[in-house]
Design a protein around this nucleic acid. Structure first.
Lengths: 193, 193, 193, 193
DNA sequence: AATGAATGAGTGTTCATTCAT
DNA sequence: AATGAATGAACACTCATTCAT
């Protein structure tokens, strides 16, 4: 029964995450989210105490899964450059293949309340920290100044954040190839700086 | 008097653009925009017939100025690589120094109505086209396959779109230095591909 | 100059009457009325102090012309039955040929304010009184009870009020024929009762 | 519970129909309709998705009941003239005794939207068709040209539409007597033509 | 656990009207 | 005389949230 409830909560979160990702925070209304679960709006209050809480749980849930995955990659045995490259690669796969809601929910979304924005920012920092640690290790290995490495990483974040805006999964380039090419491109600036 | 009116319209547009950029389309309410102009909500209807029209004019106005500036750069006498590099540089200056509303209004913003999205997309395509033509000339000069050039440009667009998210104008790096470094980094993939 | 002003006032009244007749009192907005006069909304306040006053003048002006015409018919030398018949005939011509605004403005229209309704009712009673006097003379001539005569007249008023709802000026029946046939039909009940 | 809801919907419809009939479509505001039901304005949206839909349901509901009643009369065993006479009689009873909202809602009302007007016109045609079929049978029985019969029917419709404007239920003439006298008067033109 | 009912707060929009120019 | 500017009042409609069942 506690089991059942947990499953239901998870189902609500997944559905809500998708709707938030599609329509944004303000554009997502509880009645529509509930409808996708064969429920009516007010029923969501059995699982979450407010729209804000529902959103935060969605976002935290996705973040946990994604960050766990990235940390597994970051912990792999490999030289620093290869590890960072693999992180970029993994992030592309996450975005376009495995967690299509991740980006809209974390980066693109606009939030009306300051506390929501703050909480989301924390999660985003946690996500970015995985990359930052890997980038730091590259810098230690190859040398180069911090400012350049930081800028290279910002370029990578920005580029990664817009992949779903232009990548066409039905097009000639497969997801894996996309991931490899993006990773190769994004690792570039770290090598030259 | 036509002069005066035009000035007032322009003032409304500028203010509205700022509010739209700060709070998004749905988050921006007419009463607040009007308040920043020392007006009450309905008074805006002297200048625009609807919120949608107000938004479109804001966006079109900014787009026109920005694209004109970029096209001036694109038309300069220089070798193709240098021209593309200067475009990247100019875009950074536009974003962080001259038109801080440009990005939130054009890229980040989420729109509830399909026709608004379509109109915005057209403007975005027009903006991107300036870069695409310059990138194509680089490719003709240096060789390389189209897919690589396209991906390099997408990386650049993404990176450029996120500059205001992380750049701190009060920090140690000046705006011009930022622009130079971003341009140098973003031109990189075009040279190696 | 007083002359000129009177002409302008009359022109405003005619235009406003048409718009009121077409769209009803609430549906008619001052900006649109003014636009048909190549003016802007607030300019109407040079001629009338409020929408209510504008409406009342429209309605009074039409009423005066129409009632004058009907009284001319009612004063003609003829036997009572023929006079009433000619009144019915005249009313049809007024409605469908000469004052197409008359009915919507006087009978169909719905008014939001009680005092407006009261004023309009007075004018309507004045209009009906012309017919009532003629009907009373018919009753004196032919005999019959008051209630029957009254009901016959009410039938006639109702029938007359709906002629523009169904009569097609482009159809096979001409306006004069329509007027004759309506008059013949409406006089009927007075003869039999 | 479905039962309860249906009852509530019906109560909303009845109340709304009354308010629409009293004040017209534009003059009726949702807050007032709701107040008569001890509700606040937005609560009406539990039962209807828009003011337009609310109005259409009011009108369709009344039309269904009224037309059903008239068709029962039209189907009675009787000679054609008597049947038409009984239809006129029934219509009077409907208007002044049983469905006082019918006429203002169907005939008098002015609608701001073209689609609303069209829908209402369809219902009005359906209502008129009952009379038209009966009138046609009279014509087949007695002879006479179509144009005359049509005009006689139009006179009847007009007369019937205005009965509530003048009939005083507190006066000396009872409702049934009114109905008989109106019916007798309106059938007249069909006999002489 | 689920929901039908209800609502307060808010939002875009309309419009008659006022006023300074 | 005409009007551009401005506004208060009103109104349809949305939505997160509460509560009794």
């Amino acid at each position: 029964m506690a089991r059942k409830r947990a499953e239901r909560v998870a189902r609500v979160e997944r559905t809500a995450a998708r709707v938030f990702a599609e329509r944004g925070y303000e554009g997502a209304n509880l009645e529509d989210i509930a409808a996708q679960l064969d429920l009516r709006g007010p029923s969501l209050y059995h699982y979450f105490s407010s729209k804000e809480e529902l959103f935060l749980r969605c976002v935290r849930g996705s973040a946990d899964e994604v960050i766990t995955r990235l940390e597994a990659v970051a912990a792999a045995e490999a030289d620093p450059v290869e590890r960072l490259r693999l992180l970029f690669r993994e992030q592309v796969l996450i975005e376009v293949r495995d967690y299509p809601d991740f980006l809209p929910l974390f980066v693109t979304i606009r939030l009306p309340a300051a506390d929501l924005r703050e909480r989301l920012l924390e999660l985003r920092r946690e996500h970015e920290a995985v990359f930052q640690r890997a980038a730091e290790q590259v810098r230690e290995a190859l040398g180069g100044d911090r400012a350049s490495a930081s800028l290279s990483l910002r370029v990578a974040f920005g580029a990664l954040a817009h992949v779903p805006d232009w990548y066409d999964p039905g097009g000639p380039m497969g997801v894996e190839e996309l991931a490899e090419r993006m990773a190769a491109t994004l690792i570039g600036p770290f090598l030259r700086s």
